[in-house]
Structures are given as C-alpha cells and as structure tokens.
Design a protein around this nucleic acid. Structure first.
Length: 122
DNA sequence: ACAGTGACAACAT
DNA sequence: TATGTTGCCACTG
C-alpha cells in the first residue's frame, strides 16, 4: 500500500476554501511522525503532470503547522499557492501566513479514513 | 542493502 | 520573537 496515494486520497477530500497541515494529514493516516513524508508526496505530484488518468490533487490546501505556506525550495510556487487559496476565498497575508483556525478543515473521521484506504488497495 | 534527500514539526537557545 | 538543531520516515538510485 502506497503512502503517497494515501496522502493524495486525503488531500482530495479537503474542500475549497479550507486548509490543513502536513502533520495533520500524517496523523489522519496513522503516521504521526511522517509529516515530512507528506510534503515529499506532494512534491512528487509533478511526476503525474502528463498522466491524463491521474485525478487532480488540491495540493495548495496544505500548509505548515505554523499556519504559513511553506517556502522551502519553492519560493516561486509558494506565491502561486497563495493566489490559488485567495481564489477560494482564503485571506492570505503578504508574508504567506493565514489564520489557521479560521480556515482549518475538520478532517476525516476514522471510518471515513478506512473507507478511503479500502478504495485505494486493489 | 544502504545512504542521501526533503513542500515537517517540536525543541532549544 | 526568531533562528538553529534534531528526530523523522517514505522514497529513490
């Protein structure tokens, strides 16, 4: 069972106008210390850009635990991420921070997670 | 098999 | 408050 695909499945559940953090996604998947790997999974999305069968992932709705858009190694795309969020009604400050509690996604219940993971493995 | 690599996060100064 | 340090772990060559 591929951790990346699990991450993508969860991120696809984040509704427009909401955000969550790398660490929260890791915890939802039962890997509380895999936050870093979540970021790595999102970075790997560029490998799918050509694949027409790949369901899009709203990667821009994932930010860090401090309520800030990550800029590590992606100074260029961080600003694009901010614009994508603004298009969804999220108020992103000039310094790429936002009011996390205000836009935080409630997340998935244990049962919902199980259903999602069940659909992935085949 | 194994060492290197991060879109993290919690701590320590 | 703001940096720096350290533990982390899935994935890759």
């Amino acid at each position: 069972m591929n951790f990346y695909d699990q991450v993508y499945a969860v991120v696809r559940c984040i509704p427009s106008g909401k955000v969550t953090s790398y660490g929260r996604i890791a915890r939802m998947l039962g890997r509380p210390r895999a936050a870093r790997a979540v970021g790595y999974a999102l970075n790997a999305l560029k490998d799918h850009h050509q694949d027409p069968n790949f369901e899009p992932v709203p990667w821009h709705r994932v930010i860090n635990a401090a309520g800030r858009i990550s800029t590590v190694n992606r100074e260029l795309t961080a600003n694009r991420q901010a614009d994508l969020l603004r298009d969804e009604g999220v108020s992103v400050n000039e310094d790429l921070t936002l009011h996390l509690e205000r836009y935080l996604w409630a997340g998935l219940s244990l049962m919902e997670i199980e259903n999602i993971l069940r659909e992935i493995r085949d």
